[in-house]
Design a protein around this nucleic acid. Sequence first.
DNA 1: AATTTGTCTTTTGTATACAAAAAACAAGAA
DNA 2: TTCTTGTTTTTTGTATACAAAAGACAAATT
Lengths: 214, 214
Amino acid sequence: MEIIHTDLSFEVYKRLKTMILANEFEPGEKLVQEQIAAMFGVSRMPLHKAFQMLENEMLVENLPRRGFYVTEIDNAKLLDAFECREALEGIAARRTTQVITEKELDDLKSLFKPFISKIKIDIKKYIEADQAFHNSILQLSGNQILQKFEVVKNITSQTYRGGLIRQPEETLPEHLAIIDAISKGDAQLAEQLMREHSVKTQELIREQINKEKT
Amino acid sequence: MEIIHTDLSFEVYKRLKTMILANEFEPGEKLVQEQIAAMFGVSRMPLHKAFQMLENEMLVENLPRRGFYVTEIDNAKLLDAFECREALEGIAARRTTQVITEKELDDLKSLFKPFISKIKIDIKKYIEADQAFHNSILQLSGNQILQKFEVVKNITSQTYRGGLIRQPEETLPEHLAIIDAISKGDAQLAEQLMREHSVKTQELIREQINKEKT
DNA sequence: AATTTGTCTTTTGTATACAAAAAACAAGAA
DNA sequence: TTCTTGTTTTTTGTATACAAAAGACAAATT
Protein backbone atom coordinates (compact mmCIF):
# COMPACT_ATOMS: atom_id res chain seq x y z
CA MET A 1 0.00 0.00 0.00
CA GLU A 2 2.29 2.71 -1.26
CA ILE A 3 1.72 6.32 -0.30
CA ILE A 4 1.92 8.57 -3.30
CA HIS A 5 3.26 12.00 -2.58
CA THR A 6 4.17 14.48 -5.23
CA ASP A 7 6.24 17.61 -5.12
CA LEU A 8 4.52 20.95 -4.85
CA SER A 9 6.08 21.91 -8.17
CA PHE A 10 4.31 19.03 -9.86
CA GLU A 11 0.96 20.12 -8.44
CA VAL A 12 1.58 23.62 -9.71
CA TYR A 13 2.49 22.21 -13.13
CA LYS A 14 -0.68 20.19 -13.36
CA ARG A 15 -2.88 23.10 -12.31
CA LEU A 16 -1.27 25.49 -14.77
CA LYS A 17 -1.44 22.96 -17.56
CA THR A 18 -5.14 22.45 -16.97
CA MET A 19 -5.73 26.18 -16.97
CA ILE A 20 -3.75 26.72 -20.15
CA LEU A 21 -5.45 23.87 -22.02
CA ALA A 22 -8.82 25.22 -20.81
CA ASN A 23 -7.95 28.60 -22.33
CA GLU A 24 -8.00 30.44 -19.04
CA PHE A 25 -5.03 32.44 -20.35
CA GLU A 26 -4.86 34.24 -23.66
CA PRO A 27 -2.33 33.07 -26.23
CA GLY A 28 0.69 35.31 -25.81
CA GLU A 29 -0.38 36.37 -22.33
CA LYS A 30 2.45 37.07 -19.91
CA LEU A 31 2.44 34.89 -16.81
CA VAL A 32 3.93 37.12 -14.14
CA GLN A 33 5.78 34.92 -11.70
CA GLU A 34 5.08 36.99 -8.60
CA GLN A 35 1.38 37.14 -9.38
CA ILE A 36 0.94 33.47 -10.17
CA ALA A 37 3.00 32.50 -7.13
CA ALA A 38 0.79 34.71 -4.94
CA MET A 39 -2.33 33.31 -6.57
CA PHE A 40 -1.29 29.74 -5.73
CA GLY A 41 0.20 30.69 -2.36
CA VAL A 42 3.63 29.26 -3.19
CA SER A 43 7.09 30.69 -3.61
CA ARG A 44 8.65 31.25 -7.00
CA MET A 45 10.92 28.24 -6.92
CA PRO A 46 8.34 25.49 -7.45
CA LEU A 47 6.47 27.77 -9.81
CA HIS A 48 9.59 28.30 -11.86
CA LYS A 49 10.11 24.57 -12.01
CA ALA A 50 6.54 24.10 -13.18
CA PHE A 51 7.05 26.73 -15.85
CA GLN A 52 10.05 24.86 -17.15
CA MET A 53 8.06 21.68 -17.41
CA LEU A 54 5.38 23.53 -19.33
CA GLU A 55 8.03 25.10 -21.51
CA ASN A 56 9.34 21.67 -22.34
CA GLU A 57 5.85 20.84 -23.56
CA MET A 58 5.65 24.08 -25.51
CA LEU A 59 2.65 25.27 -23.55
CA VAL A 60 4.60 28.32 -22.44
CA GLU A 61 7.62 30.13 -23.80
CA ASN A 62 10.37 31.77 -21.81
CA LEU A 63 11.98 34.99 -22.97
CA PRO A 64 15.10 35.27 -20.77
CA ARG A 65 14.87 38.15 -18.34
CA ARG A 66 11.41 39.04 -19.59
CA GLY A 67 9.29 36.24 -18.30
CA PHE A 68 7.07 33.40 -19.39
CA TYR A 69 4.30 33.70 -21.94
CA VAL A 70 1.51 31.38 -22.97
CA THR A 71 2.52 29.89 -26.28
CA GLU A 72 0.82 31.28 -29.34
CA ILE A 73 0.14 28.59 -31.85
CA ASP A 74 0.10 29.87 -35.36
CA ASN A 75 -0.92 27.83 -38.34
CA ALA A 76 2.61 27.00 -39.32
CA LYS A 77 3.40 25.56 -35.90
CA LEU A 78 0.16 23.63 -35.94
CA LEU A 79 1.00 22.04 -39.24
CA ASP A 80 4.53 21.33 -38.09
CA ALA A 81 3.14 19.49 -35.11
CA PHE A 82 0.76 17.46 -37.26
CA GLU A 83 3.61 16.57 -39.55
CA CYS A 84 5.62 15.27 -36.61
CA ARG A 85 2.59 13.47 -35.30
CA GLU A 86 2.11 11.78 -38.65
CA ALA A 87 5.61 10.42 -38.53
CA LEU A 88 5.61 9.39 -34.90
CA GLU A 89 2.18 7.81 -34.87
CA GLY A 90 3.17 5.94 -37.99
CA ILE A 91 6.05 4.18 -36.29
CA ALA A 92 4.01 3.81 -33.12
CA ALA A 93 1.34 1.93 -35.06
CA ARG A 94 4.01 -0.18 -36.70
CA ARG A 95 5.64 -1.11 -33.41
CA THR A 96 2.31 -1.67 -31.68
CA THR A 97 1.40 -4.15 -34.39
CA GLN A 98 4.57 -6.10 -33.58
CA VAL A 99 4.17 -6.24 -29.82
CA ILE A 100 0.47 -6.04 -29.01
CA THR A 101 -1.15 -8.75 -26.87
CA GLU A 102 -4.58 -10.25 -27.39
CA LYS A 103 -5.88 -8.43 -24.35
CA GLU A 104 -4.55 -5.09 -25.51
CA LEU A 105 -5.99 -5.65 -28.97
CA ASP A 106 -9.42 -6.34 -27.48
CA ASP A 107 -9.21 -3.12 -25.45
CA LEU A 108 -8.29 -1.23 -28.59
CA LYS A 109 -11.19 -2.70 -30.52
CA SER A 110 -13.64 -1.86 -27.78
CA LEU A 111 -12.83 1.85 -28.04
CA PHE A 112 -14.98 2.38 -31.11
CA LYS A 113 -17.51 -0.36 -30.60
CA PRO A 114 -20.13 2.05 -29.19
CA PHE A 115 -20.10 4.01 -32.45
CA ILE A 116 -20.35 1.28 -35.05
CA SER A 117 -23.55 1.34 -37.08
CA LYS A 118 -24.97 4.20 -35.10
CA ILE A 119 -27.09 6.69 -36.97
CA LYS A 120 -26.15 9.54 -34.70
CA ILE A 121 -22.82 9.67 -32.94
CA ASP A 122 -22.24 11.54 -29.70
CA ILE A 123 -19.43 13.88 -30.69
CA LYS A 124 -18.12 14.46 -27.20
CA LYS A 125 -17.80 10.77 -26.56
CA TYR A 126 -16.28 10.20 -29.96
CA ILE A 127 -13.61 12.80 -29.24
CA GLU A 128 -12.76 10.93 -26.06
CA ALA A 129 -12.49 7.65 -27.94
CA ASP A 130 -10.43 9.36 -30.65
CA GLN A 131 -7.98 10.66 -28.08
CA ALA A 132 -7.90 7.38 -26.19
CA PHE A 133 -7.16 5.56 -29.45
CA HIS A 134 -4.20 7.75 -30.34
CA ASN A 135 -2.87 7.69 -26.79
CA SER A 136 -3.18 3.93 -26.66
CA ILE A 137 -1.17 3.43 -29.82
CA LEU A 138 1.65 5.51 -28.40
CA GLN A 139 1.57 3.67 -25.07
CA LEU A 140 1.22 0.21 -26.56
CA SER A 141 4.20 0.74 -28.85
CA GLY A 142 6.40 0.66 -25.77
CA ASN A 143 8.79 3.14 -27.33
CA GLN A 144 10.26 5.02 -24.37
CA ILE A 145 11.32 8.03 -26.37
CA LEU A 146 7.89 8.53 -27.88
CA GLN A 147 6.57 9.35 -24.45
CA LYS A 148 8.63 12.55 -24.62
CA PHE A 149 6.50 13.98 -27.34
CA GLU A 150 3.74 15.35 -25.19
CA VAL A 151 4.46 18.61 -26.96
CA VAL A 152 3.04 17.30 -30.21
CA LYS A 153 -0.12 16.21 -28.43
CA ASN A 154 -0.50 19.56 -26.69
CA ILE A 155 -0.35 21.49 -29.93
CA THR A 156 -2.47 19.24 -32.08
CA SER A 157 -5.12 18.98 -29.39
CA GLN A 158 -5.79 22.67 -29.90
CA THR A 159 -7.79 21.64 -32.95
CA TYR A 160 -10.42 19.93 -30.79
CA ARG A 161 -11.57 23.33 -29.56
CA GLY A 162 -13.74 23.87 -32.59
CA GLY A 163 -14.98 20.33 -32.43
CA LEU A 164 -13.73 17.63 -34.78
CA ILE A 165 -11.94 18.63 -37.92
CA ARG A 166 -13.25 15.61 -39.71
CA GLN A 167 -16.51 13.90 -38.90
CA PRO A 168 -16.81 10.44 -37.38
CA GLU A 169 -18.37 9.15 -40.60
CA GLU A 170 -15.03 9.80 -42.20
CA THR A 171 -12.55 8.96 -39.46
CA LEU A 172 -14.26 5.99 -37.87
CA PRO A 173 -13.65 3.71 -40.88
CA GLU A 174 -10.04 4.84 -40.89
CA HIS A 175 -9.60 4.03 -37.22
CA LEU A 176 -11.20 0.64 -37.75
CA ALA A 177 -8.98 -0.08 -40.73
CA ILE A 178 -5.90 0.71 -38.66
CA ILE A 179 -7.09 -1.60 -35.92
CA ASP A 180 -7.78 -4.26 -38.52
CA ALA A 181 -4.25 -4.03 -39.90
CA ILE A 182 -2.88 -4.28 -36.37
CA SER A 183 -5.13 -7.26 -35.75
CA LYS A 184 -3.77 -8.96 -38.86
CA GLY A 185 -0.23 -8.24 -37.76
CA ASP A 186 0.49 -6.16 -40.84
CA ALA A 187 2.88 -3.57 -39.42
CA GLN A 188 3.62 -1.81 -42.69
CA LEU A 189 -0.05 -1.42 -43.50
CA ALA A 190 -0.82 -0.18 -40.00
CA GLU A 191 1.85 2.46 -40.37
CA GLN A 192 0.68 3.47 -43.82
CA LEU A 193 -2.95 3.75 -42.80
CA MET A 194 -2.09 5.71 -39.67
CA ARG A 195 -0.06 8.15 -41.67
CA GLU A 196 -2.73 8.56 -44.34
CA HIS A 197 -5.22 9.22 -41.56
CA SER A 198 -3.02 12.07 -40.37
CA VAL A 199 -2.27 13.38 -43.87
CA LYS A 200 -5.97 13.81 -44.59
CA THR A 201 -6.36 15.86 -41.45
CA GLN A 202 -3.39 17.99 -42.45
CA GLU A 203 -4.84 18.61 -45.86
CA LEU A 204 -8.13 19.74 -44.38
CA ILE A 205 -6.36 22.07 -41.99
CA ARG A 206 -4.38 23.54 -44.84
CA GLU A 207 -7.60 24.17 -46.76
CA GLN A 208 -9.15 25.89 -43.79
CA ILE A 209 -6.07 28.04 -43.40
CA ASN A 210 -6.14 29.02 -47.04
CA LYS A 211 -9.82 29.83 -46.76
CA GLU A 212 -9.19 32.18 -43.86
CA LYS A 213 -6.60 34.01 -45.93
CA THR A 214 -9.12 34.94 -48.64
CA MET B 1 25.71 45.35 -32.92
CA GLU B 2 23.72 43.39 -30.41
CA ILE B 3 25.30 42.33 -27.15
CA ILE B 4 24.70 38.70 -26.47
CA HIS B 5 24.40 37.83 -22.82
CA THR B 6 23.17 34.54 -21.53
CA ASP B 7 21.91 33.49 -18.15
CA LEU B 8 24.22 31.74 -15.77
CA SER B 9 21.92 28.75 -15.84
CA PHE B 10 22.45 28.39 -19.58
CA GLU B 11 26.22 28.43 -19.14
CA VAL B 12 25.90 25.72 -16.50
CA TYR B 13 23.70 23.70 -18.84
CA LYS B 14 26.19 23.90 -21.67
CA ARG B 15 29.12 22.92 -19.47
CA LEU B 16 27.29 19.98 -17.95
CA LYS B 17 26.08 18.82 -21.33
CA THR B 18 29.59 18.88 -22.70
CA MET B 19 30.86 16.93 -19.72
CA ILE B 20 28.11 14.34 -19.97
CA LEU B 21 28.53 13.84 -23.72
CA ALA B 22 32.30 13.55 -23.14
CA ASN B 23 31.66 10.75 -20.65
CA GLU B 24 33.11 12.62 -17.70
CA PHE B 25 30.34 11.09 -15.62
CA GLU B 26 29.45 7.43 -15.44
CA PRO B 27 26.07 6.30 -16.70
CA GLY B 28 23.81 6.13 -13.66
CA GLU B 29 26.13 8.35 -11.64
CA LYS B 30 24.43 10.60 -9.11
CA LEU B 31 25.00 14.31 -9.64
CA VAL B 32 24.89 15.77 -6.15
CA GLN B 33 23.55 19.29 -6.39
CA GLU B 34 25.59 20.76 -3.55
CA GLN B 35 28.81 19.32 -4.95
CA ILE B 36 28.25 20.38 -8.54
CA ALA B 37 27.14 23.82 -7.42
CA ALA B 38 30.30 24.18 -5.32
CA MET B 39 32.40 22.88 -8.20
CA PHE B 40 31.03 25.55 -10.55
CA GLY B 41 30.90 28.22 -7.85
CA VAL B 42 27.19 28.90 -8.33
CA SER B 43 24.12 28.50 -6.18
CA ARG B 44 21.68 25.65 -6.62
CA MET B 45 19.03 27.64 -8.41
CA PRO B 46 20.72 28.04 -11.80
CA LEU B 47 22.13 24.54 -11.46
CA HIS B 48 18.69 23.16 -10.85
CA LYS B 49 17.43 24.96 -13.92
CA ALA B 50 20.28 23.51 -15.96
CA PHE B 51 19.45 20.04 -14.68
CA GLN B 52 15.90 20.44 -15.86
CA MET B 53 17.05 21.39 -19.31
CA LEU B 54 19.28 18.34 -19.39
CA GLU B 55 16.45 16.21 -18.11
CA ASN B 56 14.30 17.43 -20.93
CA GLU B 57 16.98 16.18 -23.29
CA MET B 58 17.15 12.89 -21.45
CA LEU B 59 20.79 13.38 -20.58
CA VAL B 60 19.93 13.19 -16.90
CA GLU B 61 17.05 11.73 -14.95
CA ASN B 62 15.44 13.13 -11.84
CA LEU B 63 14.18 10.86 -9.09
CA PRO B 64 12.05 13.19 -6.93
CA ARG B 65 13.59 13.80 -3.54
CA ARG B 66 16.57 11.63 -4.41
CA GLY B 67 18.44 13.69 -6.91
CA PHE B 68 19.60 13.77 -10.51
CA TYR B 69 21.40 10.92 -12.21
CA VAL B 70 23.21 10.65 -15.52
CA THR B 71 20.93 8.77 -17.86
CA GLU B 72 21.80 5.17 -18.55
CA ILE B 73 21.10 4.25 -22.11
CA ASP B 74 20.27 0.63 -22.57
CA ASN B 75 19.91 -1.07 -25.91
CA ALA B 76 16.13 -0.83 -25.92
CA LYS B 77 16.21 2.93 -25.41
CA LEU B 78 18.86 3.28 -28.08
CA LEU B 79 16.73 1.43 -30.59
CA ASP B 80 13.68 3.42 -29.57
CA ALA B 81 15.58 6.62 -30.28
CA PHE B 82 16.72 5.39 -33.66
CA GLU B 83 13.19 4.44 -34.52
CA CYS B 84 12.01 7.94 -33.70
CA ARG B 85 14.92 9.38 -35.59
CA GLU B 86 13.98 7.34 -38.63
CA ALA B 87 10.50 8.80 -38.60
CA LEU B 88 11.49 12.38 -37.89
CA GLU B 89 14.38 12.54 -40.32
CA GLY B 90 12.12 11.03 -42.93
CA ILE B 91 9.67 13.89 -42.77
CA ALA B 92 12.51 16.38 -42.34
CA ALA B 93 14.02 15.17 -45.63
CA ARG B 94 10.62 15.36 -47.28
CA ARG B 95 9.99 18.91 -46.10
CA THR B 96 13.52 20.03 -46.88
CA THR B 97 13.05 18.84 -50.43
CA GLN B 98 10.02 21.08 -50.72
CA VAL B 99 11.57 24.26 -49.33
CA ILE B 100 15.28 24.14 -49.96
CA THR B 101 16.98 27.01 -51.81
CA GLU B 102 19.74 26.71 -54.38
CA LYS B 103 22.24 28.10 -51.92
CA GLU B 104 21.25 25.66 -49.21
CA LEU B 105 21.39 22.78 -51.65
CA ASP B 106 24.93 23.74 -52.65
CA ASP B 107 25.96 23.85 -49.01
CA LEU B 108 24.46 20.42 -48.48
CA LYS B 109 26.28 19.01 -51.48
CA SER B 110 29.58 20.42 -50.33
CA LEU B 111 29.42 18.48 -47.08
CA PHE B 112 30.53 15.22 -48.63
CA LYS B 113 32.56 16.58 -51.53
CA PRO B 114 35.89 16.03 -49.70
CA PHE B 115 35.18 12.32 -49.47
CA ILE B 116 34.08 11.47 -52.98
CA SER B 117 36.43 9.11 -54.84
CA LYS B 118 38.88 9.08 -52.01
CA ILE B 119 40.71 5.86 -51.39
CA LYS B 120 41.09 6.51 -47.70
CA ILE B 121 38.56 8.54 -45.78
CA ASP B 122 39.40 10.41 -42.59
CA ILE B 123 36.90 8.94 -40.16
CA LYS B 124 36.90 11.81 -37.74
CA LYS B 125 36.13 14.29 -40.49
CA TYR B 126 33.52 12.00 -41.96
CA ILE B 127 31.76 11.79 -38.61
CA GLU B 128 31.64 15.57 -38.54
CA ALA B 129 30.20 15.70 -42.04
CA ASP B 130 27.73 12.95 -41.13
CA GLN B 131 26.50 14.91 -38.14
CA ALA B 132 26.42 18.16 -40.06
CA PHE B 133 24.35 16.49 -42.77
CA HIS B 134 21.72 15.18 -40.40
CA ASN B 135 21.61 18.45 -38.47
CA SER B 136 21.24 20.40 -41.69
CA ILE B 137 18.29 18.37 -42.87
CA LEU B 138 16.50 19.05 -39.59
CA GLN B 139 17.29 22.75 -39.73
CA LEU B 140 16.49 23.18 -43.40
CA SER B 141 13.10 21.54 -43.02
CA GLY B 142 12.01 24.57 -41.06
CA ASN B 143 9.75 22.46 -38.90
CA GLN B 144 9.67 24.30 -35.58
CA ILE B 145 8.58 21.30 -33.57
CA LEU B 146 11.39 19.14 -34.90
CA GLN B 147 13.89 21.41 -33.21
CA LYS B 148 12.51 20.20 -29.87
CA PHE B 149 13.77 16.70 -30.37
CA GLU B 150 17.33 17.20 -29.25
CA VAL B 151 16.73 14.16 -27.08
CA VAL B 152 16.79 11.86 -30.07
CA LYS B 153 20.10 13.31 -31.21
CA ASN B 154 21.60 13.00 -27.74
CA ILE B 155 20.80 9.34 -27.45
CA THR B 156 21.68 8.25 -30.95
CA SER B 157 24.95 10.16 -30.84
CA GLN B 158 26.10 7.74 -28.16
CA THR B 159 26.80 5.32 -30.96
CA TYR B 160 29.63 7.49 -32.30
CA ARG B 161 31.70 6.60 -29.26
CA GLY B 162 32.86 3.34 -30.78
CA GLY B 163 33.42 5.04 -34.11
CA LEU B 164 31.02 4.63 -37.00
CA ILE B 165 28.52 1.83 -36.95
CA ARG B 166 28.61 1.61 -40.71
CA GLN B 167 31.61 2.54 -42.82
CA PRO B 168 31.73 5.51 -45.16
CA GLU B 169 31.92 3.18 -48.13
CA GLU B 170 28.43 2.12 -47.24
CA THR B 171 26.83 5.31 -45.97
CA LEU B 172 28.38 7.83 -48.33
CA PRO B 173 26.46 6.57 -51.38
CA GLU B 174 23.29 6.66 -49.29
CA HIS B 175 23.91 10.25 -48.23
CA LEU B 176 24.60 11.21 -51.82
CA ALA B 177 21.43 9.49 -53.03
CA ILE B 178 19.39 11.41 -50.49
CA ILE B 179 20.95 14.67 -51.62
CA ASP B 180 20.27 13.70 -55.22
CA ALA B 181 16.60 13.08 -54.48
CA ILE B 182 16.40 16.43 -52.74
CA SER B 183 18.13 18.04 -55.70
CA LYS B 184 15.60 16.53 -58.06
CA GLY B 185 12.76 17.75 -55.86
CA ASP B 186 11.49 14.23 -55.22
CA ALA B 187 10.20 14.57 -51.66
CA GLN B 188 8.78 11.07 -51.37
CA LEU B 189 12.01 9.51 -52.57
CA ALA B 190 14.07 11.68 -50.23
CA GLU B 191 11.95 10.53 -47.31
CA GLN B 192 12.14 6.90 -48.35
CA LEU B 193 15.89 6.94 -48.81
CA MET B 194 16.45 8.75 -45.53
CA ARG B 195 14.36 6.20 -43.70
CA GLU B 196 16.07 3.25 -45.37
CA HIS B 197 19.41 4.80 -44.38
CA SER B 198 18.25 4.75 -40.76
CA VAL B 199 16.68 1.29 -40.95
CA LYS B 200 19.98 -0.21 -42.07
CA THR B 201 21.72 1.29 -39.09
CA GLN B 202 19.03 -0.04 -36.78
CA GLU B 203 19.43 -3.51 -38.21
CA LEU B 204 23.16 -3.45 -37.66
CA ILE B 205 22.70 -2.28 -34.07
CA ARG B 206 20.23 -5.07 -33.47
CA GLU B 207 22.73 -7.60 -34.80
CA GLN B 208 25.43 -6.26 -32.53
CA ILE B 209 23.08 -6.42 -29.59
CA ASN B 210 22.18 -10.01 -30.36
CA LYS B 211 25.84 -10.88 -30.72
CA GLU B 212 26.60 -9.51 -27.28
CA LYS B 213 23.89 -11.66 -25.84
CA THR B 214 25.56 -14.89 -26.98
C1' DA C 1 25.72 -12.84 12.78
C1' DA C 2 21.68 -10.69 11.03
C1' DT C 3 18.02 -7.56 11.68
C1' DT C 4 15.75 -3.65 13.63
C1' DT C 5 15.63 0.76 15.74
C1' DG C 6 17.39 5.21 16.83
C1' DT C 7 20.37 9.10 15.91
C1' DC C 8 23.09 12.01 13.21
C1' DT C 9 24.43 13.88 8.75
C1' DT C 10 23.58 15.02 4.14
C1' DT C 11 20.70 16.24 0.43
C1' DT C 12 16.63 17.98 -1.66
C1' DG C 13 12.51 21.10 -1.85
C1' DT C 14 10.87 25.43 -0.80
C1' DA C 15 10.80 30.14 1.16
C1' DT C 16 13.01 34.47 1.61
C1' DA C 17 16.34 38.10 0.56
C1' DC C 18 19.10 40.66 -2.49
C1' DA C 19 21.04 42.26 -6.91
C1' DA C 20 20.46 43.12 -11.72
C1' DA C 21 17.66 44.07 -15.54
C1' DA C 22 13.50 45.57 -17.67
C1' DA C 23 9.37 48.25 -17.77
C1' DA C 24 6.73 52.16 -16.57
C1' DC C 25 6.36 56.81 -15.65
C1' DA C 26 7.63 61.65 -15.21
C1' DA C 27 10.23 65.62 -16.55
C1' DG C 28 12.83 68.21 -19.78
C1' DA C 29 14.24 69.45 -24.48
C1' DA C 30 13.41 70.10 -29.32
C1' DT D 1 3.32 67.42 -29.79
C1' DT D 2 6.99 64.24 -29.99
C1' DC D 3 11.22 62.52 -28.52
C1' DT D 4 14.85 61.90 -25.15
C1' DT D 5 16.57 61.45 -20.62
C1' DG D 6 16.23 60.43 -15.84
C1' DT D 7 13.94 58.27 -11.97
C1' DT D 8 11.09 54.97 -9.85
C1' DT D 9 8.81 50.65 -9.73
C1' DT D 10 8.36 46.02 -10.99
C1' DT D 11 10.05 41.70 -12.40
C1' DT D 12 13.48 38.27 -13.07
C1' DG D 13 17.81 35.78 -11.83
C1' DT D 14 20.49 34.21 -8.25
C1' DA D 15 22.11 33.53 -3.47
C1' DT D 16 21.06 32.22 1.13
C1' DA D 17 18.35 30.19 4.84
C1' DC D 18 15.29 26.88 6.64
C1' DA D 19 12.39 22.71 6.77
C1' DA D 20 11.54 18.09 5.29
C1' DA D 21 13.10 13.84 3.57
C1' DA D 22 16.55 10.49 2.64
C1' DG D 23 20.84 8.20 3.58
C1' DA D 24 24.49 6.67 6.57
C1' DC D 25 25.99 4.99 10.73
C1' DA D 26 25.79 3.28 15.43
C1' DA D 27 23.53 0.79 19.03
C1' DA D 28 20.26 -2.54 20.60
C1' DT D 29 17.69 -6.71 19.89
C1' DT D 30 16.93 -11.28 18.15
